[in-house]
């Protein structure tokens, strides 16, 4: 049976209105509701289903970030993950933590824990990078099956349906492999109370990037964060002719 590692990122809840800090150094996170990255939730759900189908023997969740990342790990545990690993990254370094850093961490943890499958969300909804799965696979020299909308483990292989432009692509990769979850892969469960209670007793191991030999020193500097331009108010035109005239006037047709 396979051992599965899932990557979990704590992000600002998608129903919260994002506000830029007055000094434009980033977005306001203090006192703002956070939660699991929705794509990571799908990854967790897929891993837990593998365990329920007796395809996976153990599911481990790993999260890189501040102390509060443990809340997200706790949610993962309540959904059915067996244990958590919190790779603590202090605020100063977390602001400039990039997918490459996270990939190196995931790759190292995967080797240490001898996992067969890594499942991560295709991207995090805060920075939208969509790089971690690909780079992790490259670092490990494992095959990658990204944007998965269906995952079937068949012996030593995984058959994955991928969401591509204009349709689906079915590929087969050998284990060990890295999979990234797309929106339609599954519908994640809600953590129920008995499982939330059980999750409190499940172990979360805390380590640092240097324990794994990963250097997370910044490779970039945040210069400026700005709000997108506000949408201009529209106007109602009385008929098609004046619409065409307006469009011409503005140079759109």
């Amino acid at each position: 049976m396979a051992r599965v590692l899932v990557g979990v990122k704590r992000v600002i809840d998608y129903a919260v209105k994002i506000r830029v800090k007055p000094d434009k150094s980033g977005v306001v996170t203090d006192g703002v509701k956070h939660g699991l990255n929705p794509f990571d939730e799908i990854a967790i759900e897929e891993a837990v289903r593998m365990k329920e189908k007796k395809i996976a023997s153990e599911v481990i969740a790993v999260s890189c970030g501040l102390q509060q990342a443990q809340e997200s790990l706790r949610t993962a545990l309540a959904m059915g993950v067996d244990r958590g690993i919190h790779v603590e990254v202090p605020q100063a370094q977390y602001d400039t933590l990039q997918p490459l850093h996270v990939s190196k961490i995931l790759a190292k943890v995967a080797q240490d824990e001898k996992v067969d499958v890594i499942i991560v969300g295709k991207q995090a909804i805060d920075d939208d990078s969509n790089q971690t799965a690909q780079m992790t696979a490259a670092l490990l020299q494992w095959p990658q099956a990204t944007f998965a909308s269906e995952v079937k483990v068949e012996g030593n292989e995984v058959v994955v349906k991928r969401e591509i432009d204009g349709g689906l692509e079915t590929i087969k990769v050998k284990l060990p492999a890295v999979i990234s979850a797309d929106l339609r892969l599954n519908e994640p469960r809600y953590a129920t109370l008995p499982n939330i209670m059980k999750a409190k007793k499940k172990p979360i191991k805390k380590i640092t990037p240097s324990d794994l030999g990963v250097d997370v020193s910044p490779r970039m500097q945040i210069v400026n964060v700005e709000d997108p331009p506000t949408r201009q108010a529209g106007s109602v035109v009385p008929d098609v002719d004046s619409l065409l005239a307006k469009l011409k006037e503005k140079g759109h047709i």
């Binding site: 129903a15 939660g35 953590a191």
Partner: peptide
């Protein structure tokens, strides 16, 4: 049985 939510998206 029960489930709880404190995130706006889940509450919605």
């Amino acid at each position: 049985d029960a489930t709880v939510a404190d995130q706006p998206s889940q509450i919605q």
